[in-house]
Each structure stands twice: as structure tokens, then as C-alpha cells.
Design a protein around this nucleic acid. Structure first.
Lengths: 241, 241
DNA sequence: CGCTCGCTTGAAATGGATCAAACATGGTGG
DNA sequence: CCACCATGTTTGATCCATTTCAAGCGAGCG
């Protein structure tokens, strides 16, 4: 069966027929993979032969730094194909690390290659998902260039809220973001101390409640304005393909 | 005929047969497009029906800011397909602006869709080019995050040198980068004044000569070390597909 | 010759990094 | 049940990177 989060991810962007669902579902290997919080899912110089779909948990792309630490450059959630890149590029430029306990499904690259011959229209949907990733990257470049960390985090919260909503992981205006502030800092490319202060300022502004992993956005419009968030790049609307 | 820069771009990543060359070449519309420096090639909310390949000149992706200015988030050079995104996503989240006089070739989306049915293997090559774009974006997120401006620029120079070399636009250790410092600042997400000072420091370090658009890298290895540049993400090696 | 544009310089204000320590927590073993 | 530890969050102080505003410089061009 087509994993539920992927179904939601795709359904938010295009109409899927029953056949599409069935055919896509047949892509995946039967065995699921479970990994614990903190596991390196893919080493930076690996040459994987399978692609990974997240069905539960959070995963980050990381780049090793000369200081020995890692900078995170992307955050992936259930429904995200984290490693289609490996199908197109033999050598991967980054690693993947689980930020929570996770469940994956996998697809063999050989299977994906057959699929691209047999199902060009559905293949374009997978292609689309990598293009959305790129759009998200550009939004992050933009946000990183913006002046205040507070705005950058506001933007990040808006994005996560929208992405999590698509896969059904929000509850009203609330959602769970099981990341340490240190990890958020690594994602924002800022120091953890500074991120902490920015978070506190956001809380004081009354736009969001944020205790531990539990986040509630009280005023999405205002938060979006603060972070200059425009969700167009997430392409979450139903369109013909 | 297959445009020369695209041929070089692809050849650096995979082996192309004569047939591949011919079939790819037939993708493009016969008419070329010429646009002048400063032209907005694509408005941020456009819904293009063609994709654009750069055959000459430099193009940037931009995002309008609330201040009325534009931040640039990517720089594209000859051989780059700048707008395959439009094929996969109906609504574009950013604009394209010519930073120099440019020449383009275009492909109709309808043509690309047929192509993806008829030529799945070559389609994966186009897909690959969008995945490389994403990898470049991640490298920029990284550079914008933890690095000082000087290092960020060093990284940028290394990347441009490698990318321009692939499409045959370097001459020994020299190349032409016809961008104003203001535009480079917009790409780096930094102020123009600060970029200027960082450039001066780079010049003083003796690693590069840089007068106007003319850049010479005297010590690539040292520059790469400074900018923590690892070109893996550009995937410029010949690999089977 | 004077104007414009892009590059350069200076000084003041601020955001963010870094180092170091205090303050929660929940979890563990005694 | 409590003392203790580990982990994550918060606070404070200092230093440096970067922005902003403002003005000077130089080359190319009508």
C-alpha cells in the first residue's frame, strides 16, 4: 500500500487516481526500517542503492564541518522522500541523521528506474518532490540572509506548520516539533544561545506558545508577516499535472 | 542541434551517445531568445509554458522583499536549465532576472512531457540537473550559515570556477564574472559595503586577483580550504547512469 | 568637462558569537 | 522516596562581525 504520509503529500499537490495509488504503493519494499533518535541514516560519502521515504519521525541533512560539528541544511518530515538524490547522483554530498526515532520505507534504485520507464507521469511526481525540496532550500537561503534571527525562526515555524498540516500532523494551530534548541540553531545556522533568546522574544510577542516540543501558533498571519513567509513555494494546492 | 554548453554540462556528468545528443537537441524550439542586461525574464507569479536553457550570459533567481529590493538566491550560467521547475510546479515562487545580456533556448512543456515518456533515461538527466541545483542550494545555506563573509565569497568563487570550467568558460585559472559587487552582495545575503571589504581582504591575501569582472585564482587549493569548499556536490565526473 | 555609476573608506550602532555559569527537568539507582 | 546525574534551557558579560549612513574617489562617457 501507498504509505499514508506520501499519499497526503502527493494529494496536496495533485489528484491521485486509485490506480496511481496502487502503482505507487507497489514501488516500496515490504520491509520497513526503524532507526533510533540520533542514528546516522546515511554517511556523507555513501553510494546508496535504495531511496528512503520517511513514514514517521524527523530527519535532517547534515554536512560535516571542519570543526568536527555538523551543520544541518534541511529538515525532513513524514511523507518526504529524503533520498531520491541518490538515484540521480551516484555520489552524495551530505549525510542524513535521524533527529527522532523514525520509520522508513525504501525503494530500490533499480525499481525506480523501471518505474520511470513504465510510469512517466507518476515519475514526474517524484521529480516534483525534489523540485519542491529545492524551492524550500531557496526559501531558507532567503531567510538566512534576512536580518533578524527572530524572523528566520518565524519563517521556519510557518513553513513547518504548513508542511506538517499537509501530512496531517498538526492539530488545530498546534503541532509537535521534537527538536532541541541546539538542533534548531544548527538548522538556522546560528548559535544555540542566540536562538534561545530569539525564541523567548517570539514567545513574549504572544504570536506563539512554545514549551518543549509543543508549539501553538496563535496568529499565523502575524507570524507570517514577521517572517515574510509566502507559502507559494510549497505548492500545496491541487493542480492538474 | 544540442546547444554546446548543455552538451558540456551533461558530458561532465555522464557519457552521451550520438543518439542522445541528437534526441536532446531536437527538444528545443528553433528560435533563440535574446534579452538585455537587467531584463526580468520571468515574473515571480508567472505560469510559464516553456522551460529556458541559458546558452550565453548570467541569470539570477530573485525573490522580492518587502523593502522593495530583491534578494538573489541562485546564480545560473550557460548550460543551466533555469526553468525546469515550471514543468513540475505550475506556480513559480520566484523570478528570474538577467544579470548580463543573455541568449536562451526554449523547450515547450508539452514537448518535455512527451519526452519524459519517450526518453526516460534522458529525462532522468534533466531531473539530475534539478537535483544538482538543490545540492548547490544546500552548499549556499551552509556557506551563509557558519562562515564569515570572506569564506562565503571564497566558497562562491570556487564553485563558480568549477561550474564555469565545466562549460568551458574559464581560461587557465582565470574567468570572467560580470557581476557588480552589489549583485554579489545580494547573492551572499550581505551588505554591499561588507562584501567589498571582504573582497579586498581576499585580494590582499594573494589568493585571487580580482579587478572588475576579471578574476584569477592563484591558489585554488588554499582558496578551497579557506571557503571549506568540497566540490562533490557539483557531481562533475563521468559516471554511468 | 562634468556627470554618473561602481567601488572604496570611515565612524557609529547593533546583532550575534562565545564563554561560562545557573537553572530546570526527568530518570536512575540506592 | 530521595539524592544525584545527565540533558536541555536560560541568563549574563564581553568581543567581534556586520549593517547602516554618509561621504570621497575614479574611470568611462555623452
Amino acid at each position: 500500500m501507498l504509505p499514508e504520509p506520501l499519499f497526503k503529500y502527493l494529494s496536496a499537490r495533485t489528484a491521485l487516481s486509485d490506480r496511481d495509488r496502487r502503482v505507487l504503493g507497489q514501488l516500496f519494499d515490504l520491509r520497513r526500517r526503524f532507526v533510533a533518535d540520533g542514528t546516522v541514516v546515511l554517511e556523507p560519502d555513501a553510494r546508496p542503492t535504495v531511496s528512503i521515504l520517511i513514514t514517521a519521525g524527523f530527519v535532517a541533512r547534515y554536512h560535516p564541518l571542519s570543526t568536527g560539528t555538523r551543520q544541518l541544511t534541511a529538515l525532513h518530515i513524514p511523507g518526504d522522500f529524503v533520498d531520491l538524490h541518490g538515484l540521480l547522483l551516484r555520489q552524495i554530498d551530505h549525510g542524513l541523521i535521524a533527529l527522532t526515532d523514525c520509520t522508513f520505507m525504501t525503494v530500490k534504485h533499480s525499481r525506480l528506474r523501471e518505474f520511470s520507464v513504465a510510469e512517466p507521469s507518476l515519475t514526474r511526481l517524484l521529480w516534483m518532490s525534489t523540485v519542491i525540496d529545492a524551492a524550500i532550500h531557496r526559501a531558507w537561503i532567503l531567510a538566512a540572509g534576512r536580518r533578524r534571527t527572530e524572523q528566520q525562526i518565524a519563517h521556519f515555524l510557518c513553513e513547518m506548520f504548513r508542511r506538517l498540516t499537509i501530512v496531517g500532523m498538526t492539530n488545530g494551530h498546534s503541532f509537535s516539533l521534537p527538536l532541541k534548541q541546539k538542533e534548531i540553531a544548527a538548522l538556522m545556522g546560528r548559535s544555540d544561545v542566540h536562538v534561545n533568546r530569539a525564541v523567548q522574544r517570539l514567545r513574549k510577542s504572544g504570536l506563539v506558545s512554545w514549551t518543549g516540543p509543543h508549539i501553538t501558533i496563535h496568529d499565523f498571519a502575524a507570524l507570517a508577516k514577521l517572517g515574510e513567509f509566502d507559502g507559494t513555494y510549497l505548492s500545496d494546492r491541487v493542480e492538474p499535472r
